[in-house]
Protein backbone atom coordinates (compact mmCIF):
# COMPACT_ATOMS: atom_id res chain seq x y z
CA UNK A 1 0.00 0.00 0.00
CA UNK A 2 1.23 3.48 -0.92
CA UNK A 3 2.65 5.76 1.77
CA UNK A 4 0.63 8.85 2.61
CA UNK A 5 1.96 12.12 1.21
CA UNK A 6 2.29 15.38 3.18
CA UNK A 7 0.51 17.24 0.36
CA UNK A 8 -2.74 15.46 1.28
CA UNK A 9 -2.53 16.42 4.96
CA UNK A 10 -4.51 19.31 6.42
CA UNK A 11 -2.65 21.22 9.18
CA UNK A 12 0.15 20.17 11.54
CA UNK A 13 1.00 16.49 11.57
CA UNK A 14 3.21 13.83 13.07
CA UNK A 15 4.77 10.92 11.24
CA UNK A 16 4.40 7.23 12.02
CA UNK A 17 5.27 3.95 10.33
CA UNK A 18 2.64 1.23 10.51
CA UNK A 19 3.59 -2.41 10.22
CA UNK A 20 0.75 -4.71 9.19
CA UNK A 21 0.21 -8.39 9.93
CA UNK A 22 1.29 -9.35 6.39
CA UNK A 23 4.71 -7.80 7.01
CA UNK A 24 4.13 -4.73 4.81
CA UNK A 25 4.76 -1.19 6.09
CA UNK A 26 3.23 2.20 5.43
CA UNK A 27 4.35 5.70 6.30
CA UNK A 28 1.38 7.73 7.58
CA UNK A 29 0.91 11.35 8.66
CA UNK A 30 -1.46 12.03 11.51
CA UNK A 31 -3.20 15.19 12.72
CA UNK A 32 -5.32 15.87 15.78
CA UNK A 33 -8.33 16.91 13.69
CA UNK A 34 -11.42 14.84 14.49
CA UNK A 35 -14.35 14.47 12.07
CA UNK A 36 -17.27 12.91 13.98
CA UNK A 37 -19.69 10.68 12.08
CA UNK A 38 -22.85 12.69 11.37
CA UNK A 39 -25.88 11.52 13.40
CA UNK A 40 -28.01 8.86 11.74
CA UNK A 41 -25.29 7.57 9.40
CA UNK A 42 -23.98 4.02 9.11
CA UNK A 43 -20.64 3.29 7.48
CA UNK A 44 -20.84 0.00 5.61
CA UNK A 45 -18.20 -2.04 3.83
CA UNK A 46 -17.63 -5.60 2.68
CA UNK A 47 -14.38 -7.42 2.15
CA UNK A 48 -13.33 -10.75 0.69
CA UNK A 49 -12.05 -13.45 3.09
CA UNK A 50 -8.55 -11.86 2.96
CA UNK A 51 -9.81 -8.43 4.10
CA UNK A 52 -9.65 -6.77 0.67
CA UNK A 53 -12.43 -4.18 0.24
CA UNK A 54 -15.10 -5.19 -2.29
CA UNK A 55 -17.90 -2.73 -1.44
CA UNK A 56 -18.24 0.61 0.36
CA UNK A 57 -21.26 2.84 0.87
CA UNK A 58 -21.40 6.61 0.44
CA UNK A 59 -20.85 7.27 4.15
CA UNK A 60 -17.67 5.16 4.07
CA UNK A 61 -16.32 7.18 1.15
CA UNK A 62 -17.20 10.52 2.74
CA UNK A 63 -15.76 9.70 6.16
CA UNK A 64 -12.54 8.13 4.85
CA UNK A 65 -11.76 11.00 2.49
CA UNK A 66 -10.74 8.59 -0.27
CA UNK A 67 -12.45 8.15 -3.63
CA UNK A 68 -14.41 4.92 -4.02
CA UNK A 69 -12.08 3.73 -6.78
CA UNK A 70 -9.11 4.17 -4.41
CA UNK A 71 -10.78 1.95 -1.81
CA UNK A 72 -12.04 -1.01 -3.84
CA UNK A 73 -9.35 -3.68 -4.09
CA UNK A 74 -7.14 -2.44 -1.23
CA UNK A 75 -6.82 -3.97 2.27
CA UNK A 76 -9.27 -2.67 4.85
CA UNK A 77 -6.28 -1.67 6.99
CA UNK A 78 -5.93 1.43 4.78
CA UNK A 79 -7.93 3.02 7.63
CA UNK A 80 -5.57 1.81 10.40
CA UNK A 81 -4.59 4.61 12.79
CA UNK A 82 -1.24 4.38 14.64
CA UNK A 83 -3.01 5.00 17.97
CA UNK A 84 -4.84 1.68 17.59
CA UNK A 85 -3.07 -1.23 19.28
CA UNK A 86 -2.31 -4.26 17.12
CA UNK A 87 -3.94 -6.41 19.83
CA UNK A 88 -7.39 -5.01 18.96
CA UNK A 89 -7.14 -6.17 15.34
CA UNK A 90 -5.63 -9.49 16.35
CA UNK A 91 -8.72 -10.05 18.50
CA UNK A 92 -10.97 -8.98 15.60
CA UNK A 93 -9.46 -11.45 13.14
CA UNK A 94 -9.29 -14.32 15.64
CA UNK A 95 -12.98 -13.78 16.44
CA UNK A 96 -14.36 -13.51 12.89
CA UNK A 97 -12.23 -16.38 11.61
CA UNK A 98 -14.05 -18.58 14.14
CA UNK A 99 -17.30 -17.51 12.46
CA UNK A 100 -18.27 -15.17 15.30
CA UNK A 101 -19.29 -11.50 15.37
CA UNK A 102 -16.82 -8.90 16.63
CA UNK A 103 -17.62 -5.54 18.23
CA UNK A 104 -15.28 -2.81 19.28
CA UNK A 105 -14.40 0.85 19.32
CA UNK A 106 -11.97 1.85 16.59
CA UNK A 107 -10.09 5.06 15.78
CA UNK A 108 -9.87 5.29 12.00
CA UNK A 109 -7.36 7.27 9.95
CA UNK A 110 -8.62 9.57 7.20
CA UNK A 111 -6.83 10.31 3.96
CA UNK A 112 -6.20 13.89 5.20
CA UNK A 113 -4.45 12.63 8.37
CA UNK A 114 -7.45 13.33 10.62
CA UNK A 115 -9.43 10.68 12.47
CA UNK A 116 -12.93 9.50 13.40
CA UNK A 117 -14.06 7.12 16.12
CA UNK A 118 -16.54 4.37 15.35
CA UNK A 119 -18.31 1.54 17.10
CA UNK A 120 -17.64 -1.29 14.67
CA UNK A 121 -19.38 -4.63 14.18
CA UNK A 122 -17.86 -7.21 11.85
CA UNK A 123 -19.62 -10.40 10.83
CA UNK A 124 -18.57 -13.29 8.59
CA UNK A 125 -20.75 -13.75 5.48
CA UNK A 126 -21.59 -17.43 5.15
CA UNK A 127 -23.33 -18.81 2.03
CA UNK A 128 -24.15 -22.53 1.79
CA UNK A 129 -21.72 -23.12 4.64
CA UNK A 130 -18.85 -21.31 2.90
CA UNK A 131 -17.18 -18.07 3.99
CA UNK A 132 -17.40 -15.54 1.15
CA UNK A 133 -16.23 -12.43 3.03
CA UNK A 134 -16.99 -10.07 5.89
CA UNK A 135 -19.44 -7.21 6.40
CA UNK A 136 -18.51 -4.32 8.65
CA UNK A 137 -20.93 -1.70 9.94
CA UNK A 138 -19.64 1.29 11.87
CA UNK A 139 -21.65 3.87 13.76
CA UNK A 140 -21.21 6.91 15.96
CA UNK A 141 -20.18 6.10 19.54
CA UNK A 142 -20.75 8.29 22.59
CA UNK A 143 -17.98 10.51 23.98
CA UNK A 144 -17.88 8.49 27.19
CA UNK A 145 -17.24 5.26 25.26
CA UNK A 146 -14.51 6.94 23.21
CA UNK A 147 -12.77 8.10 26.41
CA UNK A 148 -12.90 4.56 27.81
CA UNK A 149 -11.43 3.16 24.59
CA UNK A 150 -8.67 5.79 24.49
CA UNK A 151 -7.66 4.92 28.05
CA UNK A 152 -7.69 1.18 27.35
CA UNK A 153 -5.78 1.38 24.06
CA UNK A 154 -3.09 3.59 25.62
CA UNK A 155 -2.27 0.69 27.95
CA UNK A 156 -2.04 -1.81 25.06
CA UNK A 157 0.42 0.13 22.88
Amino acid sequence: MKDMTPDDIAGEYREATLQYHDGSKRLVYVTEVETPIPDGRLIVSRTDPQGIITHVNTSFVEMSGYREEDLIGVPHFILRHPDMPAAAFKDLWETVKKGKKWHGYVKNLRRDGGFYWVYATVIPNIRQGKLIGYTSVRRKPSRSRIKEAEALYATLQ
Binding site: L42, V44, R46, K101, H103, T121, V122, I123, N125, R127, T135, S136, V137
Partner: peptide
Protein backbone atom coordinates in the same frame (compact mmCIF):
# COMPACT_ATOMS: atom_id res chain seq x y z
CA UNK B 1 -31.19 -9.78 0.23
CA UNK B 2 -28.47 -11.89 1.85
CA UNK B 3 -26.36 -8.70 2.07
CA UNK B 4 -29.24 -6.82 3.71
CA UNK B 5 -29.65 -9.67 6.17
CA UNK B 6 -25.93 -9.59 6.99
CA UNK B 7 -26.35 -5.90 7.64
CA UNK B 8 -29.34 -6.55 9.89
CA UNK B 9 -27.29 -9.19 11.72
CA UNK B 10 -24.59 -6.64 12.50
CA UNK B 11 -27.19 -4.16 13.76
CA UNK B 12 -29.02 -6.70 15.89
CA UNK B 13 -25.78 -8.08 17.30
CA UNK B 14 -25.47 -5.83 20.36
Amino acid sequence: TEFMIDLMDTLMAN
